[in-house]
Amino acid sequence: MAADSPIIVSRPAPGVQQITFNRPSRLNALNPDLIIELTKELDALVRADDVKVVVLTGSGRGFCSGADLSGEVFPTGVEGDPNRHWTAVQSWYSGVIAKLRRIPQPVIAAVNGPAVGGGFSIAMASDIRLAAPEAYFSAAQINIGQSVSEMGASYFLPRIIGGRATEILMTGRRVQADEAERIGFVSRVCAGNVVDEAVELAEILAAKAPLALRMSKEALNASQEIGSLEAALAMEDRTQVVCVLSKDLAEGELAFRQKRKAVFSDTAAVV
C-alpha cells in the first residue's frame, strides 16, 4: 500500500496483521476513502487464514477522531435523494462495526491518542483495548447535535462498563486513559509504546490454537445475545465439541505431556 493510503496494512509479527489509520493531519478522521478501504480489508480478513490476530491503531498522535466534518461527499450513487443518501452513508459506517465483530480474528485496539465519535465506537467494537497515557475517549457527536446511538455505541458501551455508559455518552465528555482503565473500558494503560505492547499481546494470542481462538471469539460475541444460562451452556458445549475433534487439541495435549511448545496446524479435521 502507498504511504498516502488512508490505511496502512503491515505484518509486525507472524500471524499478526496491523491496520493503521493513516490520515494523521486530520487525527485519522473517517472519510469516504478510509471507510471504503477499511471495509475492503475487513472483507479480506474473513478468509485470511494466515492472520490470527488484528491490531488497530492510528498514525501520528491520534487513534481516530470520528467522522471527517470537512464536507467531503460520500459516493453513494444517490446523492440527489437526501434520505437514501444518508441511509447509505450510515450503512457504510455501521458496516465497519459489524465487520469488525464478524471477522474470525480477535481485534486489539492500540489506542494511541484521541478516540472520538466513530473512533470511540471502533475501540468499543474491538475485542481488547490498550491505551497510551495520552489517549482519551469521547462520544463528541452529541456536542454537535447528533445522537450518540451510532456505530454500535449504545449497544457496546453499556455492555462493557455498565451504568456509567449513559452519563459518558450523553455528556460527550472526555474519558482519559486512567479513568478508562479504572472503569474497565481498557485492559491497561501502557507505560511503553502502546502499539509495541499490543503486538506483543497479539503474538501471545497468535500462538494459541487458531481454531480455539476463533471459536472463543464467536462464543464471547454470541454470549452477548443469548438470553439464558442454559442456551449459553449449549452453545459452549457445541464449541468445545468442535475443538475436541480437531487435530489442534491432540497436538496441544501431546505437547503438554512432552513438555514442549505446541505446533498447531489450524485444522478442524476429525482425528
Rank of each mutant, 00 (worst) to 15 (best):
Ile183Lys: 07
Gly119Ile: 11
Arg129Val: 10
Ile142Ala: 02
Ala139Val: 07
Ala131Ser: 15
Ser126Trp: 02
Arg182Cys: 04
Ala123Glu: 11
Pro133Glu: 10
Asn143Ile: 05
Ala125His: 12
Ile122Gly: 05
Gly172Ile: 09
Ala180Phe: 00
Glu134His: 09
Gly152Pro: 03
Pro158Met: 02
Gly163Cys: 00
Glu134Leu: 07
Gly118Pro: 06
Ala125Val: 12
Asn143Gln: 15
Ala131Arg: 07
Gly119Ser: 08
Ala153Phe: 01
Val175Met: 12
Arg129Asn: 13
Gly145Pro: 03
Gly145Trp: 05
Arg173Met: 06
Ala131Thr: 11
Ala123Cys: 14
Gly184Pro: 04
Gly172Trp: 06
Ala177Gly: 08
Ala132Tyr: 09
Glu150Gly: 12
Glu179Trp: 05
Glu134Gly: 13
Met151Ser: 13
Pro158Ser: 03
Ser147Gly: 13
Gly184Asp: 09
Glu150Cys: 06
Arg188Pro: 04
Arg129Phe: 00
Arg182His: 13
Val189Cys: 08
Glu150Asn: 12
Leu130Cys: 08
Thr171Ser: 14
Ala165Met: 07
Arg174Gly: 09
Ala153Met: 14
Ala132Pro: 07
Gly163Asn: 11
Val148Ile: 06
Thr166Asn: 05
Ala180Asn: 01
Ile128Val: 15
Tyr155Ser: 04
Val186Trp: 01
Met170Asn: 10
Glu179Phe: 02
Asp178Ser: 14
Ile183Asn: 08
Ile168Asn: 01
Leu130Asp: 01
Gln141Pro: 02
Asp127Leu: 09
Ala139Trp: 00
Ile142Ser: 02
Ala139Thr: 01
Glu134Ser: 13
Pro158Gly: 01
Gly118Met: 03
Ile168Lys: 02
Glu167Ser: 06
Ala140Tyr: 10
Pro158Thr: 05
Arg129Ser: 10
Met170Thr: 15
Ala140Gly: 02
Ile183Asp: 13
Thr166Trp: 05
Phe156His: 11
Arg188Met: 12
Ala153Arg: 05
Gln141Lys: 03
Ser147Asp: 10
Arg182Ala: 15
Phe156Glu: 11
Gly152Met: 02
Met151Ile: 05
Glu181Tyr: 13
Phe120Ser: 03
Arg164Leu: 10
Ala140Phe: 08
Arg164Pro: 01
Ile122Thr: 11
Gln146Gly: 07
Asp127Phe: 05
Glu134Pro: 00
Ser147Leu: 13
Leu169Ser: 04
Ala125Gln: 10
Ala131His: 09
Ala131Cys: 13
Arg182Gln: 15
Ala139Glu: 07
Gly172Cys: 07
Glu150Val: 10
Ala135Phe: 12
Arg182Thr: 10
Phe156Trp: 08
Asp178Met: 11
Ala135Asn: 11
Pro133Tyr: 13
Leu157Lys: 05
Gly184Arg: 00
Leu157Gln: 12
Ile183Gly: 07
Tyr136Trp: 08
Thr166Ala: 11
Leu169Cys: 09
Gly118Gln: 10
Ala131Glu: 07
Arg174Asp: 14
Gly184Ala: 03
Ile122Cys: 05
Gly184Val: 06
Gly163Ala: 13
Val175Cys: 06
Phe120Gln: 04
Met170Asp: 04
Ser138Ala: 15
Val148Thr: 08
Gln146Arg: 14
Glu167Arg: 06
Ala123Gly: 15
Asp127Trp: 06
Ser187Glu: 15
Ser154Lys: 12
Ala177Val: 08
Ile128Tyr: 11
Arg188His: 14
Ala140Val: 12
Ala140Thr: 09
Met170Leu: 11
Thr171Tyr: 00
Phe156Ala: 06
Glu167Gln: 05
